[in-house]
């Protein structure tokens, strides 16, 4: 009963979030458009399925064999957060469950959680971000990836492809 109540709550939050989303992130950015991704297509190392996005503005790439996922925050999120001054990365070997806050980003006196849409074990973190947090603003959907995760299942909750996500962020 309690579980059902909380699931309903999350659903309600997601709904109200979707409706009100344009100002999800504070200040400036509601109108900025997402930078085109095409330029990075050849930089992707491992073969991956189509990139998925969450309503929390994370992206996730799942390898063709379905065993690893790479997670980051979207271009839209990075612009909206403003200058990132610190990124709290998850620890390698940490077990994580879908919906967990696995780290946090700090910008303009604000701590924002990084949520994982998928369960698994963290296998690698992008330690460049520890030294140069600002690099997440430069290339959030490429060099600014956050963590690689060993996975068994699929993402939980709603995910979108690039077009759907772009529409989601542009929708007034």
């Amino acid at each position: 009963m309690a579980a059902r109540f909380s699931a309903a709550r999350v659903a309600r939050q997601l709904t109200s979030f979707a409706v009100q989303r344009p100002s999800f992130f504070p200040s400036t950015c509601a109108h900025k458009t997402v930078a085109p991704l095409q330029r990075r297509l050849f930089a992707e190392s491992a073969a991956a399925k189509e990139r998925q996005y969450t309503e929390d503005h994370e992206w996730i790439d799942i390898s063709l064999d379905g065993k690893t996922a790479t997670l980051g925050i979207s271009d839209y999120a990075a612009k909206a957060l403003g200058d990132v001054v610190y990124i709290e990365l998850p620890q390698v070997d940490m077990d994580i469950s879908a919906g967990d806050a696995i780290g946090a980003v700090e910008s303009v006196k604000s701590a924002s959680d990084i949520l994982t849409p998928i369960s698994g074990k963290v296998t690698e973190v992008n330690s460049v971000l520890e030294e140069k947090p600002g690099s997440i603003n430069k290339d959030p959907e490429g060099e600014g990836w956050i963590a690689k995760i060993a996975i068994e299942g699929e993402p939980e909750g709603k995910t979108m492809n690039k077009e759907e996500y772009t529409a989601f962020t542009e929708e007034a």
Binding site: F17, Q20, S23, P26, V108, K109, S110, A111
Partner: peptide
């Protein structure tokens, strides 16, 4: 604390105020 930002001193002459609101309603 759990929020971002810098170090502050508190004492009995200081009132802390906090607002929790929907993201859609929020600006800094």
């Amino acid at each position: 604390r759990r929020s971002g930002g810098g170090a502050v001193f508190h004492d009995e002459g200081n009132v802390n105020w906090s607002i929790t609101c929907p993201m859609a309603d929020f600006t800094r």
